[in-house]
């Protein structure tokens, strides 16, 4: 290697690190350090605003295993994630397929399904509190009109979490629909034509042509959906405060309760680490099961 070439490479390397530095400073302070620190906190007895810290070892984690509320909260979190994501993606896919067939008024439909993404979570949550109101809420009025029984929705521990799931489908389907629409546009239309001429029914076309061809995007949408599901904190905070009887208490909210209301940073950190393991596990599971089945157009 000639000395001038080596010097050029050294210069390029220094420039690269200089360009990364601004990002790395912020990432280090607000992403990496918090993760390391929350592991450290979880092994100690830490109270918010109290400078004294005591070593506890694994005690916070043992307490977590014994905490019945923790298991309930974990179950609620899993229920929310595992219903909201498949349901809103299924709705999104059907909407996208319907709109992809060159329907007239397509732009208007698209915006009608997409606009909830623009609405702040706190506003969305509040409006749905009104819509779900047992006495005068429009949803119960509609149920009565249809001859169905009225429900207590957010005041009923059976229905409160499903009510938040329904709201989330309304909030996020439009976003997933847009991403899927972009993917559908790339599917060559002669594939559909060939199948149609061979007499393949619409349902089979969806199952055997559309879904395999947009599978990389579906996979991407599932990951995005998993990350978006953190936002349930906002809805729980605005709509139910975890109630009734902790039926809508989820991990992010339980961390908040322990850390901010009970000021128990040590235990809340153990919970936060459990949340990270839960999300990473979920994403890992998706990558291992669906990631392998994903079909890329033009491959092979």
């Amino acid at each position: 290697m000639s000395p001038s070439f080596a010097r050029a490479r050294r210069k390029e390397m220094l420039l690269a690190y200089a360009l990364l530095l601004p990002s790395l400073v912020f990432l280090a302070i607000f992403t990496y350090w918090p993760i390391l620190r929350s592991v450290w906190f979880s092994l100690h007895d830490v109270l918010l605003g109290d400078p004294d810290i005591y070593w506890l070892g694994a005690e916070n984690y043992l307490r977590l295993l014994d905490d019945r509320l923790f298991w309930k909260v974990l179950g609620n979190t899993a229920f929310y994630t595992l219903t909201t994501i498949p349901l809103s993606i299924a709705v999104a896919l059907l909407l996208a397929v319907a709109l992809d067939s060159k329907l007239r008024g397509m732009a208007i439909y698209r915006s009608a399904f997409f606009y909830p993404v623009m609405i702040p979570s706190v506003a969305a949550g509040m409006v749905w509190v009104f819509l779900y109101a047992p006495g005068y809420g429009p949803i119960n009025e509609a149920l009565t009109t249809l001859g169905l029984p009225r429900l207590d929705w957010l005041y009923d521990s059976q229905w409160a979490l499903p009510a938040i799931v329904i709201m989330s489908i309304w909030k996020y389907s439009g976003y997933f629909m847009l991403i899927l629409l972009a993917a559908l546009k790339l599917v060559p239309s002669d594939l559909y034509e060939a199948a149609r001429l061979d007499g393949v029914s619409g349902w089979h076309r969806l199952l055997h042509i559309t879904i395999p061809l947009v599978s990389p995007t579906l996979y991407f949408v599932i990951i995005i959906g998993t990350l978006h599901s953190y936002q349930i904190f906002d809805y729980v905070y605005v709509m139910t405060q975890g109630g009734p009887a902790d039926s809508t208490n989820v991990l992010t909210f339980y961390i908040y309760q322990n850390g901010f209301q009970y000021q128990d940073i040590g235990y809340a950190s153990a919970l936060a680490n459990a949340l990270l393991v839960f999300v990473l596990g979920l994403i890992g599971l998706v990558a291992l099961t669906l990631g392998r089945k994903v079909h890329y157009l033009g491959e092979r």
Partner: peptide, 26 residues
């Protein structure tokens, strides 16, 4: 380069909702 890029992507997995507690303390 690859290691650093992975570290950047890590942030996507850990939004503020997951690490708000320690960030608040910081």
């Amino acid at each position: 380069k690859n290691l650093l890029f992975t570290l950047f992507l890590l942030q996507v997995m850990f939004p503020i909702y997951a690490i708000f507690l320690t960030n608040f303390v910081t």
